[in-house]
Amino acid sequence: RIEKCYFCSGPIYPGHGMMFVRNDCKVFRFCKSKCHKNFKKKRNPRKVRWTKAFRKAAGKELTV
């Protein structure tokens, strides 16, 4: 099963990425440490230029 990165919305293939479980049992999956570090710094994915959330908000990503 291919999961989605919580921060950048990129695909996470089986055996890859990192799973972060908070004390309230909420699960966050990250494709790379870059995404996990930005999440820990409480960065907003919509303001980080390389994420899909930014591209969609800025009108750069074509949605079908």
Results as ranks from 00 to 15, higher is better:
residue 50 W to F: 12
residue 44 N to A: 08
residue 30 F to I: 04
residue 36 H to M: 12
residue 54 F to L: 10
residue 60 K to E: 15
residue 7 F to N: 13
residue 5 C to R: 13
residue 18 M to T: 08
residue 49 R to W: 04
residue 42 K to L: 12
residue 30 F to S: 01
residue 24 D to N: 02
residue 59 G to M: 07
residue 42 K to G: 10
residue 37 K to V: 10
residue 26 K to R: 07
residue 36 H to N: 03
residue 59 G to Y: 09
residue 22 R to S: 14
residue 57 A to N: 05
residue 32 K to M: 06
residue 34 K to N: 05
residue 64 V to T: 09
residue 2 I to V: 09
residue 24 D to W: 00
residue 39 F to M: 02
residue 28 F to D: 06
residue 63 T to W: 05
residue 56 K to Y: 15
residue 19 M to I: 12
residue 25 C to P: 03
residue 14 P to C: 01
residue 61 E to G: 01
residue 16 H to C: 10
residue 51 T to G: 07
residue 40 K to E: 15
residue 63 T to M: 12
residue 28 F to V: 11
residue 44 N to V: 05
residue 29 R to L: 08
residue 47 K to V: 12
residue 23 N to A: 09
residue 51 T to I: 04
residue 52 K to W: 11
residue 14 P to R: 01
residue 33 S to T: 08
residue 26 K to A: 10
residue 63 T to K: 05
residue 2 I to Y: 08
residue 39 F to P: 00
residue 62 L to T: 10
residue 28 F to L: 13
residue 21 V to L: 06
residue 40 K to A: 11
residue 64 V to F: 04
residue 12 I to V: 07
residue 54 F to T: 14
residue 20 F to A: 07
residue 52 K to N: 12
residue 40 K to H: 08
residue 24 D to F: 00
residue 32 K to D: 15
residue 20 F to T: 12
residue 30 F to G: 01
residue 26 K to W: 01
residue 28 F to C: 01
residue 12 I to F: 01
residue 64 V to S: 03
residue 45 P to I: 02
residue 57 A to L: 05
residue 19 M to V: 10
residue 21 V to E: 06
residue 25 C to S: 12
residue 45 P to K: 06
residue 33 S to G: 05
residue 45 P to Y: 03
residue 28 F to W: 03
residue 24 D to K: 01
residue 45 P to F: 04
residue 15 G to Y: 02
residue 42 K to V: 06
residue 54 F to R: 04
residue 42 K to N: 10
residue 10 G to S: 11
residue 17 G to R: 01
residue 50 W to S: 11
residue 6 Y to R: 01
residue 18 M to S: 08
residue 17 G to M: 03
residue 55 R to H: 15
residue 24 D to P: 01
residue 61 E to H: 00
residue 54 F to C: 11
residue 19 M to E: 11
residue 40 K to D: 13
residue 54 F to D: 15
residue 22 R to P: 07
residue 49 R to V: 14
residue 17 G to H: 03
residue 34 K to S: 11
residue 5 C to F: 01
residue 17 G to W: 01
residue 57 A to Q: 08
residue 54 F to N: 14
residue 2 I to P: 08
residue 32 K to S: 14
residue 41 K to R: 03
residue 28 F to N: 02
residue 44 N to W: 03
residue 61 E to P: 10
residue 15 G to T: 05
residue 38 N to G: 04
residue 49 R to Q: 15
residue 19 M to F: 09
residue 41 K to A: 08
residue 57 A to S: 08
residue 30 F to W: 00
residue 36 H to C: 09
residue 13 Y to Q: 13
residue 19 M to L: 08
residue 22 R to F: 11
residue 52 K to Y: 11
residue 53 A to H: 05
residue 44 N to G: 08
residue 18 M to L: 10
residue 48 V to I: 08
residue 25 C to E: 12
residue 6 Y to A: 13
residue 20 F to V: 10
residue 8 C to Y: 00
residue 17 G to C: 03
residue 42 K to M: 09
residue 13 Y to V: 12
residue 9 S to F: 07
residue 58 A to D: 14
residue 56 K to V: 13
residue 50 W to Q: 09
residue 19 M to S: 09
residue 31 C to H: 00
residue 55 R to F: 13
residue 51 T to H: 05
residue 35 C to A: 00
residue 20 F to E: 15
residue 47 K to S: 13
residue 58 A to L: 04
residue 36 H to L: 09
residue 42 K to F: 03
residue 62 L to G: 15
residue 34 K to E: 14
residue 48 V to A: 07
residue 39 F to A: 05
residue 35 C to V: 00
residue 12 I to T: 09
residue 22 R to Q: 14
residue 61 E to D: 10
residue 29 R to N: 09
residue 42 K to W: 03
residue 32 K to W: 01
residue 39 F to D: 04
residue 41 K to T: 08
residue 15 G to A: 03
residue 63 T to G: 12
residue 52 K to L: 10
residue 25 C to N: 13
residue 18 M to W: 05
residue 31 C to N: 00
residue 45 P to N: 10
residue 57 A to V: 08
residue 31 C to W: 00
residue 7 F to G: 13
residue 54 F to I: 11
residue 51 T to K: 06
residue 19 M to D: 10
residue 7 F to V: 12
residue 44 N to M: 06
residue 58 A to C: 06
residue 45 P to D: 11
residue 52 K to E: 15
residue 33 S to L: 05
residue 41 K to C: 05
residue 32 K to H: 06
residue 52 K to H: 13
residue 40 K to F: 12
residue 19 M to G: 04
residue 32 K to I: 00
residue 35 C to G: 00
residue 55 R to L: 13
residue 13 Y to E: 14
residue 40 K to I: 05
residue 26 K to E: 15
residue 21 V to K: 03
residue 58 A to K: 07
residue 41 K to M: 07
residue 14 P to T: 04
residue 55 R to T: 15
residue 29 R to G: 06
residue 52 K to I: 14
residue 43 R to L: 12
residue 62 L to R: 10
residue 44 N to T: 05
residue 48 V to T: 07
residue 64 V to M: 13
residue 45 P to A: 08
residue 32 K to A: 12
residue 38 N to Q: 08
residue 10 G to D: 09
residue 38 N to F: 02
residue 15 G to S: 04
residue 51 T to N: 07
residue 56 K to P: 15
residue 1 R to V: 11
residue 63 T to V: 08
residue 14 P to V: 02
residue 21 V to S: 03
residue 13 Y to P: 11
residue 44 N to K: 05
residue 62 L to Y: 03
residue 57 A to K: 03
residue 29 R to P: 08
residue 46 R to E: 15
residue 28 F to H: 00
residue 14 P to Y: 02
residue 22 R to E: 15
residue 24 D to L: 01
residue 1 R to N: 11
residue 47 K to R: 04
residue 60 K to L: 13
residue 50 W to C: 09
residue 22 R to Y: 11
residue 38 N to E: 14
residue 28 F to R: 02
residue 43 R to S: 15
residue 54 F to W: 05
residue 1 R to Y: 00
residue 17 G to F: 04
residue 39 F to E: 06
residue 57 A to P: 09
residue 21 V to G: 03
residue 33 S to Y: 02
residue 47 K to P: 14
residue 14 P to E: 05
residue 31 C to S: 00
residue 36 H to D: 06
residue 43 R to A: 13
residue 49 R to E: 15
residue 19 M to Q: 09
residue 32 K to L: 01
residue 62 L to S: 13
residue 31 C to P: 00
residue 18 M to P: 03
residue 42 K to P: 02
residue 27 V to Q: 08
residue 14 P to G: 03
residue 55 R to E: 15
residue 51 T to F: 03
residue 48 V to N: 07
residue 34 K to W: 03
residue 56 K to N: 14
residue 6 Y to L: 04
residue 22 R to T: 14
residue 59 G to T: 10
residue 37 K to L: 07
residue 49 R to H: 13
residue 37 K to C: 04
residue 25 C to I: 03
residue 20 F to P: 01
residue 43 R to K: 12
residue 62 L to C: 03
residue 14 P to H: 03
residue 17 G to S: 07
residue 39 F to V: 02
residue 61 E to I: 05
residue 25 C to R: 06
residue 15 G to L: 02
residue 58 A to P: 07
residue 36 H to I: 07
residue 59 G to Q: 11
residue 27 V to L: 04
residue 56 K to Q: 14
residue 30 F to N: 00
residue 26 K to M: 08
residue 27 V to H: 02
residue 34 K to T: 12
residue 20 F to C: 03
residue 16 H to Q: 11
residue 2 I to W: 05
residue 28 F to E: 12
residue 6 Y to T: 11
residue 1 R to M: 13
residue 57 A to R: 02
residue 62 L to F: 07
residue 29 R to V: 08
residue 62 L to Q: 14
residue 51 T to V: 08
residue 60 K to G: 14
residue 28 F to T: 05
residue 20 F to K: 02
residue 26 K to C: 04
residue 36 H to K: 05
residue 19 M to N: 09
residue 41 K to F: 06
residue 50 W to E: 15
residue 58 A to R: 04
residue 20 F to S: 07
residue 16 H to V: 07
residue 26 K to Q: 13
residue 53 A to F: 03
residue 52 K to C: 13
residue 26 K to P: 02
residue 13 Y to H: 09
residue 22 R to I: 10
residue 34 K to F: 04
residue 7 F to Y: 09
residue 62 L to D: 14
residue 41 K to Y: 03
residue 62 L to W: 05
residue 41 K to E: 14
residue 23 N to R: 04
residue 47 K to D: 15
residue 36 H to Q: 12
residue 63 T to P: 15
residue 1 R to I: 13
residue 50 W to P: 10
residue 31 C to R: 00
residue 56 K to W: 11
residue 60 K to T: 14
residue 42 K to Q: 12
residue 51 T to A: 07
residue 62 L to I: 04
residue 64 V to G: 13
residue 7 F to A: 10
residue 45 P to R: 02
residue 22 R to M: 14
residue 9 S to P: 06
residue 6 Y to V: 05
residue 34 K to R: 03
residue 60 K to D: 15
residue 15 G to P: 06
residue 36 H to T: 04
residue 16 H to P: 09
residue 34 K to D: 14
residue 19 M to H: 06
residue 52 K to M: 13
residue 10 G to V: 04
residue 18 M to Q: 11
residue 45 P to H: 03
residue 16 H to T: 12
residue 53 A to S: 06
residue 33 S to P: 09
residue 1 R to T: 13
residue 58 A to F: 04
residue 33 S to I: 06
residue 30 F to P: 00
residue 23 N to Q: 03
residue 62 L to A: 12
